[in-house]
Nucleic acid binder design. Sequence first.
DNA 1: TCAATAATCTCTCTTAATGAGATTTTATGT
DNA 2: ACATAAAATCTCATTAAGAGAGATTATTGA
Lengths: 259, 259
Amino acid sequence: MTTKAINSLERLQAVLEVFSEDRLEWTPEEMMEVLGYSRPTLYRYLKILKSAGLLTSMPNTGFTLGPKIVELDYLLRKSDTLILNGAPHLENLTSRYSCTALVVRWYGEKILCVDSRSSVKNPVSSYPRGRPMPLSRGAIGRSIMAFLPKRHLVPLIERAIADMKAVGLGSTIEEVLESLKRVKKAGFAVAYGEVTPGVVGIAAPVFDAGRSPIASVCVTISGSLVNGTTIDEIGQHVRRSGSEISAALASHRHQATTQ
Amino acid sequence: MTTKAINSLERLQAVLEVFSEDRLEWTPEEMMEVLGYSRPTLYRYLKILKSAGLLTSMPNTGFTLGPKIVELDYLLRKSDTLILNGAPHLENLTSRYSCTALVVRWYGEKILCVDSRSSVKNPVSSYPRGRPMPLSRGAIGRSIMAFLPKRHLVPLIERAIADMKAVGLGSTIEEVLESLKRVKKAGFAVAYGEVTPGVVGIAAPVFDAGRSPIASVCVTISGSLVNGTTIDEIGQHVRRSGSEISAALASHRHQATTQ
DNA sequence: TCAATAATCTCTCTTAATGAGATTTTATGT
DNA sequence: ACATAAAATCTCATTAAGAGAGATTATTGA
């Protein structure tokens, strides 16, 4: 639930916002309670969302998300240049290493996996496609933060200094900045079991138009399969993938400009 | 574009409807044209949809679908009992045969793959998750139609008699009904290269509360890997999966009723 | 079939959405 | 870095159209 909806249009959207990982099924009664809408109003909204396919309901079942979402997701996968340009690199990384490879988009204060591919039978990643995660933990977030201008970075760190401390990035803003500077120099970030115990994450940024980071490519691999040397090898590989995806995005952008 | 939107709430949703496989990127100008909204109104709508994350826009790029859709899709995959109950069966089918296995939901006049799994390197299926397909072609649609009551079925056939004829189901309604009766008796439908050349589809229905079909389980496999005997074996397997998923759905439903 | 629950309707009262045109903000080329 | 073009937002009078209390009608399960 973002900000309080003032107009009907936002009030309509707010209905979708009640669906979360904690609560995937809602009765109209419960929604009325939480959203504070009257019965006819809520039902009006539900009817529209249902006829659009964004919600469904079955007898004896509350409302749940509807099939239109699956359709939209398909369309998104076909239109997202990040996903399209990233796919061959995920293919490449997973065929080279026994790992899970991810493309992760940076999105407000959080990051969101938009594509992943795995070459292990039972992927250990606790980070599936579509589940937002905080920026402050793990290699992905760090690979992005390391390339942010200081003025954007400092407020971010201030808000998440506790997490930073917990993973040993530093206990003051200065120390964290110093750690991130090293990440920037290396061109990729490494995290040991920060998101999932026993799993190493290795991530490099993806840039939009050569400037600011917008996403990250990441390899997650069992800690038992790697050592310092292989981590560095994978890191270089990931870094290269990141910059190749960035280049592809830039050229696509250029096409849009010149055509 | 379904029916003409009369109220602002539907007009807002209609913006999402312009995104299709043919057109994944839209400029405000183009939307104004197609939707017939005034400039301020359209921008109001776009702002709301963008802040909800359903749309995104980048400089030099039109509007495209946004990251919230990926999040919603994740939530849907966690809440859809059909997907959840179907997953182990897809696992089972793909481990037994060198194939792609699908769970496909019936949804209005069309069908929609909501989950799939493959045990071949380069899956040949032209039916990815999220792409709606007509009911009239392929084993999936037939496995569902065969179990519909005649009064629902006849209008469907009338509208799609051309397709039915093309795949040899029969040239009159009577003949098609007869073909579907045989499918019903067998408990599964088979299609030879109707959707993708060289690929055999084998599908069985999934029922809701034991009554009407709501979905289908389907195996698609290269025609070169099967003969009459193996098709029948897979058919039985698919049929069993279908009824086990149905049973699981019914028991879930019952829980909802009694708790 | 019937009781209980769920969804919709009716109708008045306002509130709030609309759009023409102007303005401001943001991007692009030199 | 600046000027210019394009994109997005604002202003405000007009009027359409959501909101909601309560009654009514569909659905559903026993």
